[in-house]
Design a protein around this nucleic acid. Sequence first.
RNA 1: GGGCGCAUAGCUCAGCUGGGAGAGCGUCCGCUUCACGCGCGGAAGGUCACAGGUUCGAGCCCUGUUGCGCCCACCA
Length: 837
Amino acid sequence: MDARYDHVSAEQPIFARWEATGVFAGRPDSGLEPYVIAFPPPNVTGELHMGHALNGAFQDTLIRLRRMQGRDTLWICGTDHASIAVHAVIEKQLRAEGLTRFDLGRERFLERVRRWREDTGATIIQQLKGLGCTLDYDHERFTMDEGYVRAVLTMFVRLYRKGYIYRDNRLINWCPTCASSISDLEVRYEHAHDTLYEVRYPIKSSNEFVTVATVRPETILADTAVAVHPDDDRYRHLVGRTAIVPLVDREVPIIADPYVKMDFGTGALKITPGHDLNDFEIGRRHGLPELSAIGYDGRMTALAGEFAGLPVGEARQRVRDALFAERLLGREQDYEHEVGHCDRTGDRIEPLISLQWFMNMDELAAAANAEVRSGRVRFIPPNQANTYFSWMDNIRPWCISRQLWWGHQIPVWYCPDGHQTVELDEPAACATCGSTALERDPDVLDTWFSSALWPFATIGWPDEDDPRLQRYYPGVVLTTAREIINLWVARMLMTGIEFMGDVPFTDVVINATILASDGRRMSKSLRNGVDPLELVASHGADATRYGLLKMSSTQDVRFSEGMIAEGARFANKLWNAARFVVTQADTSVAPAPAGDDPADCWVRSRLAAALEEVLRLIDAYDFSAAVKALYAFVFDFCDWYIEAAKPRLQGSDAAARRDVSANLLWTLERILGLTHPICPFVTEAVWSHLPGERGLLMLEPFPVPVAEHRDPAAEADVQAAIAAISQARSTPDVRLVLPRGFAAAALVRALVPRQTEVVEDEVGTVVIEAAAEDPAEVRARLEERLAHAHAELDRARGKLANERFIAGAPAEVAEAERAKVARFEVEVRELEERLRG
RNA sequence: GGGCGCAUAGCUCAGCUGGGAGAGCGUCCGCUUCACGCGCGGAAGGUCACAGGUUCGAGCCCUGUUGCGCCCACCA
């Protein structure tokens, strides 16, 4: 064994050995209790970023631990076809060639997508292997696999027949570059500086005007009403009258609707159902016509008359000028607000009326809500459920159709008469009129529609007899990022309940977001990101896992490479501890809890406590605290137990040598087992160097808590001795007060500095004195300690003298204060004596 | 605009139901080169963002202020 753990040469071969076992695929015939994690399938376009790496480390740690604990673990591997994201990539390539997807046509475009996917491959899967993740790679799923497509279409057909899915003309978010609708959750709002224009609308058959405010004067051309608040005295007399829309001279009613805010703008609102969501809803309430002045290409339509064909931005300016010329333009004020942009292309979103497929989620959401409110599904941390409830409690119809080509094409066929036939497979004839001239709906489904059934479509659904479905549904835990609670988590809950009759998992763990070191979100454009692959290359997969898990305690955490470096030191420490045991201990003895020196009892007790603690923390998904507890124990083992073992291994007492060797081996084995889920590579590497015939550590049973070795008294004694010895190693005149018998203990013999003299006194304490030192310095130090002791004593006595403290403080707190008084009284007496002497 | 959260040592962060301010890294001092210099021991370093309040007692509870982050959101 080299003096340093070399992750570069160690990791690849170890992973190959793991893969060869085939256990990643689960052990369906083992009779073991299943443990399933739903893996969030990354986009095929994806590269492993920090969020994936954290989530991968998190889930793999759980999977490995449960596997060692004797569960039949399954962690389905796969990727998402990422409809709109892939479109963005390919269409960008096409633009560079001066083309659009429409130049290629549907078939050639899809061919190009498939070719591109073959070329780039799912690199992210390879990257997950590099992190050590034990996903079921042999049964990798893809949301465009044949079976998966069938599952998606089945869901569509069933929900259609249930009446949840329907086609409607509604206002949707339109991205002109994508040439498609996008979902509410794909709209990003950005701050914008615009102008708020006041525009005067003449009132028919009068000299009056009503003045409205708008940031989008070009939409005036599609206005179909003016609205005021029903209680607004300024306008009450106008309700029911007719206003004339400027420039187009359209006569529109003046209506009253409580949505209008009296105190905003002029208190009068122009209503454009075709280009504004609120107006759309007001329009539906009042039965107003829905006109479109803006087309799907982002230009003005024929309705816009002289402005037809102009891009929206230009039309706005021209309309403004025309209004000015007609003296209908009022004040123009600077106005700041949030404007929706397409998450993928950055285009400004145009709300447009469009014939689309929608999904009503009211009932599904109510059922999913109930499972969270009842506690059957819990969010960790619990307050993250607020995000979920705020969306679910106000659920709106979901526009599920996209005017894209890469994705699941909607299984609806239209005959020339416009009848809809909804079938899984292409029907021979129209179900209504029997026409055979059928045309399939060209649109595809929103990517998240297919993601929503990931937990069961990956294991056989809709084939309800598939044994995997019986065995591996429902899973246990989902760990993911905060931003997809609604996009994905909520929808999986809904579909799971609807189609499987049960939720797909009961624990939803929302991971920390790892921010860049500047405190902002890591992003390509800010160039503040850190590549996890570089961390794996430079520090090792174990170090990266360790560091990410340790960082992940709060909701948002700044990335710090120091944590990763700590992980590397930790791995190296383990490696070298093992190297010591292998080279210095008697490896012919069997590993066993042996030896009854205080140090032996202490290390076994600490191990038992660490096992219990780390396990409890992982069960609670507090990986950061688990890593800390593990680190503390491993370093205690190395710095104190191994050090104390040295003289006993080298001494002439053969029995002691055997005991210490057995104890070292036994403890080390358990440390490796406990550490393996977090740092799988180094522990596996070390394991193979230990004496004896060794299989894979990955398949070893988890070292069950060894509670019978708990010995709090020994722990307390040795911990106190360690503190005292530590002090002695830097402060030569310190007086050690150790339990009786410690002068002979391996710990003390091994660790006190050579130049100190060890004396056991008659009351069972050990005194370590410096050989020689400047008396003035000794005196000064003693005086300092005396002053401190006096101060502590006074404070404690003061508290005890306070009646309200005695009345209000818990008994143990008061007791602690009394103990403190006693302790410092002794210390003061001793210090005064030494200063006199 | 709403929700969640953060402000504690030079840095990154712990501090459970209120009861003697912590860890790792960094710095400095000492030790050690026979597992590991990616080592061992120690020390210095903090008005716990600010202002009020409750309490015998507040980093922790309440109110407000300031700064920051993330998520969500249909106010012209």
